[in-house]
Design a protein around this nucleic acid. Structure first.
Lengths: 194, 194
DNA sequence: AATCCATATATCATGATGATATATGGATGG
DNA sequence: CCATCCATATATCATCATGATATATGGATT
């Protein structure tokens, strides 16, 4: 009774509730939905998804329909409950936690003096290649969303996340250009001994 | 013999080796050093630091000097070994893994249709506040580094990571401005029911 | 004298990742 | 026509990372 006994730090909880708030679906459906929408800023794997589904069901935040079909692969469709919706709304109104980022490329560059200039240049070029196409794709998707803004109030919020990606990817690419120029202009001796 | 038996996925390993490659220090020293240099793109807590130090020592990648002083707090100073330097160099020459990011604010905005416009605006303003000062601080540090580029070959690599931060934080702030304008121009009904 | 902060090491529960296991049905291709 | 591959679908596991907490001391501040 009273307040919820359910976890508060597990973001997968709220991703599941947010998706189910839109429409009922299976864990596999969620994974696909996540892939094309939010995976760019918060990815969720099956290893986090399925255990959290079980936990949320045990806590009465979601219910499982569609039972075990003999001879066919199982498929469990989940729906959100009123308690689940309440939990989701409470989370949405709390302040967002600080951003987490982990850039291995910056880690390697920070210690880059130990290896030759070529290795560092190659790392930056690989980084640039990872995002050169992505930026254009996002921009195209953003255009679509802008045209369909009137269709649903949700579209405006989707657009906000897409614009975020556009700006950040563009910053990535600008950095890569500048970094390559800096490395090429400064003829470092290279870190390799004979 | 032959290839290393040590973990390959644990980035804390390489952060420790990278720091010790510069000079010997204690775990506490590393934490402070990390805080002011690389924590912006890969933070490490004590909970990861101390166990990894033990593991690296057991594997002969680092050695512990400075023993237990009776009556004074312990202080263990670590140094890198040749095997450790080898491991560090091998990692540096491998391609960097994909970037990990987790933006809870984008998660909340993605599901933002469920709550009122004001909650979403407040979230974005809190985000902006987190980075408005940081961008200027980084820019100032970048200026310092540019002037001291000749002092050490490492400074160029430090500068690359600082420029990355400058660009990305600037992108954050630009996004926040645009997002606020978009939310204010589109008079959404707000998600609260009576 | 009491409180607070920096130093210093360490552990633990929880959360997230990436790989792997298992099983079925449809499509593709030699 | 059979084999291979891919999509569907659920699940577990080892490893890594986070954040909080515990413990202990000495110096500085109030």
């Amino acid at each position: 009774m009273g307040v919820c006994p359910v976890a508060i730090d597990n973001r997968t909880v709220y991703i599941i509730l947010g998706l189910l708030n839109h429409e009922p679906m299976s864990g596999y459906d969620m994974k696909k939905r996540i892939e094309v929408s939010i995976s760019q800023f918060w990815d969720v794997g099956f290893g986090q998804l399925y255990p959290t589904l079980k936990k949320l069901e045990a806590d009465g935040m979601i219910v499982r329909a569609g039972e075990h079909h003999p001879g066919r692969p199982d498929r469990y469709v989940y729906s959100i409950t009123d308690r689940g919706r309440q939990l989701l709304r409470r989370w949405l109104e709390e302040p967002a936690s600080k951003e987490y980022v982990r850039y291995e490329i910056l880690l390697k560059l920070f210690f880059g003096g130990l290896v030759g200039r070529e290795a560092n240049i190659a790392a930056i070029e690989a980084f640039r290649a990872r995002y050169s196409g992505a930026a254009d794709l996002l921009a195209a998707y953003g255009e679509e969303l802008r045209l369909a803004l009137g269709d649903s109030p949700d579209h405006l919020y989707y657009l906000l996340t897409v614009i975020f990606g556009e700006k950040v990817y563009k910053a990535y690419l600008e950095w890569a250009e500048e970094a390559l120029k800096l490395l090429q202009s400064h003829q470092s001796s290279g870190g390799d001994q004979p």
